[in-house]
Structure formats: structure tokens, C-alpha cells
Simulated scan of single mutants.
Amino acid sequence: MEPQHERSAATTRVLLLKEARETDNRPDPYLSEFSTVGMEATVVPALEFSFINLESLRTKVMMNVYTPDKFASIVFTSPRAVQAVKQSLQKHPVANELSGWASQAVFAVGDATAMAVRELGLHPMGQDSGSADKLADVIIEKFVGCTLPILFPCGTLRRQELPNKLQQHGISVDSLVVYETKRHSELDTNLESYFLQQGVPDIVVFFSPSGVRFALKVLRSLAGENFEWIKFAAIGDTTATALDSAGSPACFKASRPTPRALLVAIANGTSQQ
């Protein structure tokens, strides 16, 4: 069956290449945000994840329970890293697992990551920094001259801006890979289903360079000659750079990884076109 390419002038269709996040029986915040302005948003995950090195992670996290001066801080740049900490502690639960971190600075970038950290009972700083690189500046301001390392649980496709910048300012970083990022096993099937049911989207939003690498070619194949109709949006500079390198520059770029920032970027970009 061929994809349907009829375009409706009444509703802007937005395809979000991300995992759906529902909390406390509330819909994904991106879906909620777009619905408030009458846009029809759909989520299709481009990536899937698996946790690794959880025993090592638990050992490092628990060090600050028994030896509070082992680490100066812990830094999270993705909700997945927070989930890894939670899962590592669930495997062999003990009382007050995170008590050693309660009095120390904990950093997180983005609303989703900060929310996940709060669910652990911790109080993150740096939520509004907008990117890992800018979060590094917040950390440097607080910890320059500190001799204790900072614990950085991260993924296999992590970028090096944050640890490199911290180390350039004399701040030691203990990086531990705690999850693997892979192409979603049903990406092709889910995208084909989307095109068959809804046609070519008006806007496709990419949330990471990996999403660009895995999904852009599939989108081009499904859209065919209608590919030129699609406008692309990026969350952050690195994703926008990935789109530009792939020959499909972003028309819209969110300054922060939040639904509101994305919607503002689209509104501003549309008014200028």
C-alpha cells in the first residue's frame, strides 16, 4: 500500500521522534503542549536503550553513603542516566541509598532530566542551562579548585563537551557508561504506519544526532517527492548540526530541551518564513 500524501490545510501535523513519556497518568508533555495550539502531534521513538554496568554504578553511588567525601557531585545529562541509578539501587535495595547525596550539589540539564532527579528525592541545579556545554559552566563556577571528582553516569553515544570542559578547568570527572543507545527495532514499521495513516508530516522534530542518523533516510524514502514539503526542527545545537550535515537543515531550533522552547522556536521560525 502506497503512503498517503494528502495534506490538510486545517491542521499542522507534527512527528516527534522520541520516546513517549507519561507521568502520573498525564500525557507526554510535548503532546500536551502541541495540542494547546491545535497541532496534531504524534510520537514515534527512533531509539531504544539497554542498561549496562549497573553494579559498578551502584557501587559508586553507594560510596557517598558510606564515604560522603568520595565525590563532589553527580551530573545527569539525560533521564536515562537517572533511570540507570534508580534501577541499580532497586536490584539490592538498602535504606537511605541516596542519603549521602542529599547535602551535595546534584546537576541536571533539561526539564525531563530534572524531573527524574526529583523523583529520586534529590534537588538538581542547572536545569535551565539548556545544554551539557552550558551546564559545564554552571558546574565550573561552583567547583573550580575542587579536588574531589564528579560522578558522570552517561550513555555510549555521549558527547565529550561536558567532561572535557570540566577537566580543562582542573575538575576531575569519573565517567561511567550506564546505558547503550540503539536504533529502535520497530522504527521502519512505525514510520511506515504513520505515513499510511496520516500522510506526510508538516514538521518532523529530531531530539538527538542519533535520531537524525537512524530516521532521516527512512523519512526520505517514505515521503518520496513530498520530502521537500517537510520542515525539520531540532532540539539543541548538536542535533541541528547533524541535520545540516545530512543535507536537511533545521528550520526551527529549540534553545532548550523543553516543549515550550520547541513550540516558541516553531512559532518564531514560522513567522519569519
Results as ranks from 00 to 15, higher is better:
Q4H: 06
L16R: 02
L16G: 02
L16V: 05
R21A: 05
D24T: 01
N25F: 08
R26G: 06
R26F: 11
D28F: 09
L31W: 12
F34P: 02
T42W: 02
P45K: 11
E48H: 03
E48S: 05
E48T: 01
E55H: 09
E55R: 08
S56Y: 02
R58T: 01
M62W: 08
M62K: 05
M63R: 15
V65Y: 12
V65E: 05
T67E: 11
T67H: 12
K70E: 03
S73C: 07
V75D: 03
T77D: 10
T77M: 10
T77Q: 13
S78W: 13
P79R: 14
K86Y: 09
K86G: 10
Q87H: 08
Q90M: 09
H92I: 13
H92Q: 13
V94Y: 04
A95D: 12
A95E: 13
N96C: 03
G100K: 02
G100D: 02
D111Y: 10
M115G: 11
M115Q: 13
M115C: 07
R118I: 02
L122T: 01
S131K: 02
K134Q: 13
D137T: 10
K142G: 00
C146W: 01
I150K: 03
L151K: 03
Q160P: 05
N164Q: 11
Q168W: 05
H169L: 01
G170D: 08
G170Y: 11
D174V: 07
D174W: 09
D174E: 15
L176I: 15
V178C: 11
T181Q: 14
R183F: 08
S185A: 14
N190E: 15
S193Q: 15
G199E: 06
P201E: 07
I203R: 01
V205M: 12
F207A: 13
F214I: 02
L216I: 08
K217L: 00
E225K: 00
W229E: 07
K231F: 04
F232W: 07
A234N: 07
A234F: 06
G236H: 11
D237I: 12
D237M: 08
T239C: 14
A242I: 14
L243S: 06
D244Y: 02
G247C: 03
S248I: 01
C251V: 14
K253S: 08
A254K: 00
R256W: 00
P257D: 04
A265V: 06
I266M: 14
I266P: 11
Q272P: 00
